[in-house]
Design a protein around this nucleic acid. Structure first.
Lengths: 153, 153
DNA sequence: TGTCATGTAACATAAAAAGTTACATGAAAC
DNA sequence: GTTTCATGTAACTTTTTATGTTACATGACA
């Protein structure tokens, strides 16, 4: 199953944008991900429509966050991306005549709905500021590790 | 995201096999799903190795269930299919150098692990006999609806 | 007015599920 | 024993979706 990494990519990009403060071009953001600038523009288009980011053309232009990090949840981003399916499994056919298949679909739907609701709920509770805080913690950890290493030399 | 419908297909096939009682050929099972016999054989190969089904060659051959319906869970079938990923979202890269990406991965992994565990747990609690019972209920419902319809004529 | 940046269409690539063809192998029927 | 039926499996094609790329139009600032 090929996995959709747009949510991961978008979160990455948004955190870099917040970290920078000033507008970042599609080219700069693409470099962060090792991808193509057009991929960035295409992906960010949805976020712009939802009001999560702003874009400016011309000199000094680029992308900026339209809200504070603590005012954006993972759920907001997921919805802005068009709510891609969370569950990797699906049915063979919708509205089958076969009663066996109807029973199978019903059982799977129930299981999927449960997991999907849990995941969606989780997404709605996690803010970008939470990720930024985790980043800061990792940053400090790395700095301390380096300091220790330098001292040992 | 292309969804994997092998679990759905396999459950469908297994229930038909149980309903029949005698061996069913790949061709018959393929007809149930509107697919190709080779797809059936390929998919069932994993189930045979796990001991969920048996296959016989030659005249009167075909596929039969190796266990009772209440001794097979959805989880058994999922594992026999090679445990295909349950979550449709993924990371851009594993073990990234970028601390931002590390923070993103950590946040998503946590969310995914939670949902995946819920779904896997659900699969382990549902037996094929549960689906068969639901099928029977639907069958009776349809029969009653038909009877009512006939009476009205 | 030229440069920089986004906006977007159109096309190419990659990966995985699903479908197909072809043929080898083994078991039962005749 | 030979024919027929069925699985076993390799190799290939098709389809779908995410992703990557090229090309060019549009708008903003120096």
């Amino acid at each position: 199953m090929k996995q959709d990494s747009r949510l991961s990519a978008t979160l990455h990009v948004l955190l870099h944008m917040a970290d920078r403060g000033t507008p970042m071009t599609s080219e700069e953001l693409a470099a962060c991900l090792g991808t193509n600038p057009v991929v960035i523009r295409r992906t960010m288009a949805g976020l712009r429509e939802t009001g999560l980011v702003r874009s400016e053309k011309g000199h000094g232009g680029g992308w900026t966050l339209a809200r504070a990090l603590d005012a954006i949840t993972l759920g907001d981003v997921h919805r802005a991306l068009g709510e891609p399916a969370l569950i990797a499994l699906g049915h063979r056919s919708e509205n089958p005549q076969c009663l066996v298949e109807q029973a199978v679909n019903a059982a799977l739907d129930e299981a999927f709905a449960e997991a999907e609701a849990l995941l969606a709920g989780h997404f709605d509770r996690v803010r970008l500021s939470d990720l930024a805080a985790d980043f800061s913690r990792r940053f400090d950890d790395r700095r301390q590790a380096h300091a220790k290493h330098d001292k040992a030399l």
